[in-house]
Amino acid sequence: MSNLDRFIETFLNGAVLAKYTPAILSGVWVTVELSVLIVIAGTVLGVALACIRAYRIRPVSFVIVIYADIFRALPPLVLILLAYFGLPNIGLSLSSSAVLFVILGLTLGAFAEEIVWAGITATDKGQWEAARSTGLGFGQSLIHVVLPQAVRMVIPPLTNRAIAITKMTALGTVIGVPDILNQATTAQSFSGNASPLTLAAIAYVALFLPFVILSRWLESRFSWKKG
């Protein structure tokens, strides 16, 4: 058997691929579902917290900063394991998917808050002044004038971070979330062949490449020339 044949036999075995494709596809669905939920929840949480922080109420901002720093410092895997195996001991048992959603949502929320906050502080002070001088309130100025500019400014780092966090759905494998990677490793141990993992890699690329391209498009769509 030539090296090439051995390579194909190991990584692109047609029979194995055919057999386990349905399982991997079911994993794709789980990964997509979780990713969408995590991105929506994390972004909304981050934007909301950044807006609350804009009011500069000291104790509130302090709590937000502590949350953001802790969730940005801890590896999500630690939190996932801690939540999944620890919480039942205090009478709170969540499904593995729920744990993954909550932890990754909170992690993305922490990063998104910092990113959007950076955008809010980077928005020209004159924009606030112009809005307030026309009689718009603080909240109205924030929502209609500052936030749209801040979000546009941070679309590239925000999409990058969202992609990075959603890829972490693969961590769900360790607590039994039936996502792409979990299906693939299961199939790999049943078949004794690495082809399902290849398929998983292909599935991840097929899934996330459009997001990467979308982020490029958003970057150009939401940028405007400085006057």
Binding site: D124, E129, A130, R132, T134, G135, G227
Partner: peptide, 20 residues
């Protein structure tokens, strides 16, 4: 203050139009 400011128009050196 918001009500008062509606009665006082302000024009800035750097225009401060909303770019979006």
């Amino acid at each position: 203050l918001d009500k008062v400011r509606r009665r006082i128009g302000m024009v800035f050196q750097s225009f401060n139009l909303y770019p979006h």
